[in-house]
Design a binder for these strands. Structure first.
Length: 114
DNA sequence: ACCTTGACGGCGA
DNA sequence: TTCGCCGCCAAGG
């Protein structure tokens, strides 16, 4: 399924599996999908996933641990609020202990798919 | 049909 | 190590 699903669909599958209180990056998802250079498309997919409540886009940030997509959450700091509500400490759009709560699909799903 | 933009990141200089 | 350019490819103008 995943192998035959469109790129967007695959992104949704991975993103929807991100546990609460954990975060990942666009690049990590892209790399897991076999397109490390297509991190941008992951972001674009997230943009289209706004209608999909199953996709916690707020748990996906850039590789610096910065809430770059915050802008797309109604124009307010809703994204940060959502993360903090899950126990994620955010300081001025920057996730504290980013690597500690980082959820790497390559590490968590390496044998479950593909 | 062509050009620009975009939730990023890799790789070269 | 830091800076900048290029790729990925979809959507909008």
């Amino acid at each position: 399924m995943s192998a035959n699903a469109g790129f967007f669909a695959k992104v949704y599958e991975v993103a929807s599996q991100i546990p609460e209180g954990r975060v990942t990056s666009y690049g990590a998802i892209a790399k897991y999908l076999g397109a490390a250079k297509s991190a941008r498309m992951v972001g674009w997919a997230m943009n289209a996933s706004k209608d999909r409540e199953e996709v916690p886009a707020h748990r996906v940030v850039n590789r610096n641990g910065i809430l770059t997509g915050k802008i797309h959450f109604g124009g307010t700091n809703a994204m940060q609020q959502l993360l903090e509500a899950e126990g994620v400490t955010v300081k001025d759009l920057k996730i504290i202990d980013f690597e500690t709560i980082f959820w790497d699909p390559m590490q968590e799903l390496f044998t479950e798919d593909k």
